[in-house]
Design a binder for these strands. Structure first.
Lengths: 204, 204
DNA sequence: GTCTATAACTCGATAGAC
DNA sequence: GTCTATCGAGTTATAGAC
């Protein structure tokens, strides 16, 4: 295992703590304690708390880009969109405890009227654009972005309600509902697409 | 207009400030300043910040009960459910700025691991039970609660995304989508002979 | 020179005594 | 209703360790 730098350790722990406890409620002492360094030390790495937030958002943007790029290897747009929906299942335990990391950070920064809220919304923007690309590939030329935003909103609603009620049954039934919705969408260019784009084999 | 007591003024202002700025980020000084009283005077009415939170949640529970009871005067279950959906439009400005007051409070209290989170979730519970009652009146005997939770989740998702992107167009199109969804539901009350299992359909 | 630890400062918060 | 205590937050300064 490669040895992580102190800066990386700070970013990792701050990322997790901001998610689990919120940005405002997480103190320097909390992060320092989690990393195992002294409080004064990380002013050598970050000049302010906002600088740490900025690094955490950058980190999440990068992680999101990497995940979306990884999903591009999936065979069809449907499978790629299903991969997105499935993260609700994969992360269900954390979602029921802390909500969605993207949605809850945006919500908190909105209330704080924080300048970084626009950058945090850009994480949503990555998902929106990527999903819109998939819906376009399914032939939804006119409403690809609307469908992307709709799906994003649906998943956000699932996260909020599942964490409020700690209800895994609701989460799973809503995921099933989303999968039905995707299957029921008119897929206008599917035949044409099968001609022009040969189906790829599954890759690991 | 009746003269409000100091306690009522504190509750009103705390309610608004908790919504706009969040519970954690709102200080006693903020509330005292908004009410126009001294900080020390607080302890005559509320012995701790948690006590104010408790009073605010009680206040919101009462306000929600009153609103739901008021909607009961509407002619049909469909109209009542539409009244619920319409609050997204009515409160759109505040929702785009601060999100949904119920959802954001639950989200924050979840992260803080606050004891009052269960009481806050009870506000959702009021909406869930009331909506389920309306869906039952529409003949959805088996899945009334599932439909209620689905609608609650949809509206929460709208609030999160609309506040993240400050996008009123998205909010309005999702409201239209919700209204279409409601109209497209099998409404067995009008026939009332058959007891087929209704399906959760989705259109956008 | 880079990294880290100790300590002190400032400010605003909750809390409570008078 | 004022006034003060106490605590913890973010931050800075400085000095030691690698």
């Amino acid at each position: 295992m490669t040895k992580r730098s102190t800066r990386e350790l700070i970013e990792e722990n701050a990322d997790a703590l901001f998610y689990q406890g919120g940005f405002e409620a997480t103190s320097f002492a909390d992060i320092a304690n989690a990393v195992g360094i002294s409080r004064g030390n990380f002013y050598h790495h970050f000049k302010s708390k906002d600088a740490i937030l900025d690094a955490v958002i950058t980190r999440r943007l990068d992680a999101t880009r990497a995940m979306l790029e990884h999903w591009e290897a999936d065979a069809s747009p449907e499978v790629r969109i299903l991969a997105f929906i499935q993260i609700l299942i994969t992360n269900r335990t954390k979602i029921m405890a802390f909500g969605c990391p993207v949605g809850t950070l945006n919500t908190e920064l909105s209330k704080l009227d924080h300048a970084a809220q626009n950058r945090a919304a850009e994480i949503f923007g990555l998902f929106r654009d990527w999903l819109a690309k998939q819906f376009t590939a399914l032939g939804h030329n006119d409403d690809a972005e609307a469908l992307a935003l709709h799906l994003l909103g649906r998943s956000q609603g699932v996260a909020v309600m599942a964490s409020a009620f700690r209800d895994e049954g609701f989460l799973r039934s809503e995921v099933a509902s989303l999968e039905d919705w995707l299957q029921g969408l008119p897929q206008q260019l599917k035949t044409q697409q099968l001609k022009t784009r040969p189906r790829m084999t599954e890759c690991s």
